[in-house]
Write a protein that binds this DNA or RNA. Structure first.
Lengths: 142, 142
DNA sequence: GTGAATGCAAAAACTTTGCATACGC
DNA sequence: GCGTATGCAAAGTTTTTGCATTCAC
C-alpha cells in the first residue's frame, strides 16, 4: 500500500463522516488489495494480527455498508462476502463450483431485464440488481 | 393441498430415493404453497405446530438440496431462503428493499452474458447463474 | 477535552453433531 | 424386521449487545 493509497483511504473515510482509525484504515487496505470479496471470517483473521477484534470487524463492515463504501455479495452455500464499492468499475462475479475461485466480469446490461421485470411485477422502480455466474475454472474443468 | 398434490409429493420423494415421511410431506406442501422462497426460521416455525423439530428442517433442506429438489436463494442482508425447483417454470426474484416483499419474473436470457463472461475470464464452462433485482414495490414507492 | 470507536466479556442467534427411538418400507 | 429418518440434548459457530477505556479530532 502506497502513501497515496493511504491518503485516499483517509479522505474517503473522513468524507463519509468517519474517523480515520487504525482498524478502519487496515480494513480499507485489505479490501483494496483483495481481488475477491472477503467473508467476515477471513477479514477478522487477517486483522487479528494487528490486534483488531472480530466485533470491530462486524461493526466496521456494518458502518461501511450503511455509508455505501462497501457492498455485500452472496454466493450459493457461502457466508456473505464484502468488497469495496467502485462505481467506475462496476463488475459481477463468476464462481468456480469446485474450488470456489472467484473472477470478475463486466458488461451486464440489465436495463432491458429491469424493464421486463417492471412490466411483469407490481414494482414501481428498480434500484439495484445482483448477477453472478457459476461454473468451472480452467483448472477444475480438466 | 389436494389429494393429487399429495400423491405427487410422495412420488417425487420416492423417486429421489427418500422415504415419504410426515415431516417431508409437510415441508413439500409448505414450499408448494409458498409464493416466495422461505428462510429456515419461517419453515421451522410453521412445522413446529406439527411437532417437527428445527433440526429436522435443516436436515430435510440439506437432503432436498443435494437431491436437486430444492434450491437456495440469497438476498442482500438476509439469511438464505429455499424454494422448490421447478424446471418448467424457471424464474428470478425481485425484492422490495423496504418491506422485503418478493415477486417473480421470467425471461432472463443469460446466454449472451455467459458467453461474454467466458471470454473475459479463465473459466471453461458455465453451469448456473443467479439474477435478482431490488427495488420498491407499489406500496412502498408511494 | 469530548465523543466516536474499540476491545473484551457475555449473551443471543444460528447451525451441526450424537445418539436412542420411531416409523416407512 | 431393517435401516432410514426423527426428536431431543448438547456442542459448535456466528453475530449482536453492553460497557469501560482509548484515541481521533
Amino acid at each position: 500500500m502506497t502513501k497515496h493509497d493511504k491518503r485516499d483511504a483517509r479522505e474517503t473515510l473522513r468524507g463519509a463522516g468517519f474517523r480515520a482509525t487504525k482498524p478502519r484504515l487496515l480494513l480499507f487496505s485489505l479490501l483494496e488489495k483483495s481481488r475477491a470479496p472477503l467473508p467476515i471470517h477471513d477479514i477478522a483473521a487477517r486483522l487479528q494480527r494487528h490486534s483488531v477484534d472480530q466485533v470491530t470487524v462486524y461493526r466496521m463492515i456494518d458502518a461501511f455498508m450503511r455509508a455505501g463504501l462497501v457492498r455485500e455479495v452472496n454466493f450459493q452455500g457461502q457466508r456473505p462476502r464484502y468488497e469495496l464499492v467502485d462505481i467506475e468499475h462496476d463488475h459481477h462475479h463468476i464462481v468456480c463450483t469446485k474450488c470456489h475461485k472467484i473472477e470478475d466480469f463486466v458488461g451486464c446490461d440489465s436495463e432491458r431485464l429491469e424493464e421486463k421485470a417492471l412490466e411483469q411485477s407490481h414494482f414501481q422502480k428498480i434500484t439495484g440488481h445482483s448477477f453472478d455466474l457459476y461454473g468451472l475454472c480452467d483448472t477444475c474443468a480438466k
